[in-house]
């Protein structure tokens, strides 16, 4: 199976992956990850074009596109999902979603020292909050994703760039930022690998509806309250 994975929940990233073995083990044919978190609309499309050229793959030859559906800051998140949906339409390739924090969970498992009690993954949600999810020792999702202040995360190790941002606040609630992962953001290469294994195990991927986790912030103005149009 040949897939294009895209994630823009924090940085912008894309990867072409192929799985040939039945256990879903994946080979990354080409990958891209930006360092910026605010240039998604500029860098993503040229990067995907570059990956296809580098790997000598035609878009119409893909079996699937997998889009990270967040959680993540809204504007950037939509760039990846809009790109994935539109490419899927144009190439006539099915598009699935995957929860973006799964990418970091995949990296934690790959690093091979998973605590028996499980672990938490967190990235920046801005406004002094974190997007986070809790995983079991086998990497299965146990809780979340949620958005909340750093002090409300479960006790235990916390992986990802969100942990690095609020290491002190996490420590106050018995959580602990894992040093080696304190800059880690979700990447499409890891998200795609996690998705391929999920499929190989007979699991389902998500739809491409974004996991905003927050309302749109709009307040009904005083003059409109009680007014029925």
């Amino acid at each position: 199976m040949l897939i294009l994975a895209i994630d823009t929940s924090a940085i912008a990233s894309a990867a072409l992956l192929r799985s040939t073995r039945t256990d879903g083990a994946a080979e990354v044919l080409a990958s891209f990850a930006s360092t910026e978190t605010n240039t998604h609309a500029e860098v993503l499309a040229p990067a995907i074009q570059g990956l296809l050229t580098e790997a000598g793959v035609a878009g119409t030859g893909l079996d699937r596109i997998v889009a990270g559906v967040g959680p993540g800051p809204f504007t950037g998140l939509r760039v990846g999902i809009a790109t994935a949906r539109t490419l899927g339409f144009a190439w006539n390739v099915p598009v699935d979603g995957a929860m973006s924090l799964d990418a970091i969970a995949w990296d934690v498992l790959a690093a091979g020292e998973v605590p028996a009690e499980g672990f938490t993954v967190a990235i920046d949600a801005r406004r002094r909050e974190l997007y986070w999810a809790r995983y079991g020792a086998d990497g299965s999702l146990a809780e979340g994703p949620r958005v909340s202040v750093p002090g409300s995360l479960p006790a235990g190790p916390v992986y990802g760039a969100g942990a690095g941002l609020y290491a002190d606040r996490l420590a106050q609630s018995g959580a602990a930022a894992v040093e080696r992962f304190r800059d880690r953001q979700p990447t499409a290469a890891s998200l795609g690998a996690a998705a391929l294994r999920q499929l190989a195990r007979g699991g389902q991927l998500l739809g491409t509806t974004p996991l905003y986790l927050r309302e749109s912030d709009a307040k009904v103005p005083a003059a409109m309250q009680g007014h029925t149009p």
């Binding site: 809204f74 504007t75 939509r78 999902i81 809009a82 949906r85 539109t86 339409f89 974004p210 905003y212 749109s216 912030d217 709009a218 307040k219 009904v220 103005p221 003059a223 409109m224 149009p229």
Partner: peptide
């Protein structure tokens, strides 16, 4: 946007994402 009495940018952006492919088709 009616109940807000004006365009709310985030609501508009969310709607664009879901409307795009159907509108293109």
């Amino acid at each position: 946007h009616v109940r807000f009495g004006g365009v709310i940018p985030e609501i508009a952006s969310r709607a664009h994402l879901d409307a795009f492919v159907p509108t293109l088709r």
